[in-house]
């Protein structure tokens, strides 16, 4: 399995998600955490970029960070899987390496 990329910044604040999406290779995975969970929501200015990237990258979002921010899983864009910390650990273990886009 390829690389797991983590993004912890809102795409409204920083370009971390954008940089990640342009440099993540097909077949890799992206996990949105902390303020990065904003990038997982439906109907935002950035939703299309994520939807386009989904063609060859799998997306995950950290549930505890969604909940903390009052963001409902129901409003997470289709195709993005919600995971808890246990799922984060599994993703890190399943992929060959982990890169944080700080």
């Amino acid at each position: 399995m390829a690389m797991l990329h983590t993004v912890n910044k809102s795409p409204f604040e920083k370009n971390s998600l954008e940089s990640c999406l342009r440099l993540a290779k097909a077949g890799s995975a992206v996990l949105l955490t902390e303020d990065g969970v904003v990038g997982a929501m439906k109907g935002t200015k950035h939703s299309k970029d994520v939807a386009d990237a989904m063609a060859n990258i799998s997306f995950y979002v950290l549930g505890p960070d969604l909940k903390a921010r009052g963001l409902s899983e129901n409003n997470v864009a289709e195709g993005i899987k919600v995971v808890d910390y246990s799922g984060f650990v599994d993703l890190a273990a399943e992929h060959e390496s982990v890169q944080a886009w700080l």
Partner: peptide, 18 residues
């Protein structure tokens, strides 16, 4: 280029970002 860099990144074992 962007694509070449993506390839290099993908080959790494450990990526440190600060």
């Amino acid at each position: 280029s962007r694509d070449e860099l993506a390839e290099v990144i993908d080959q790494q074992d450990v990526v440190f970002s600060f």
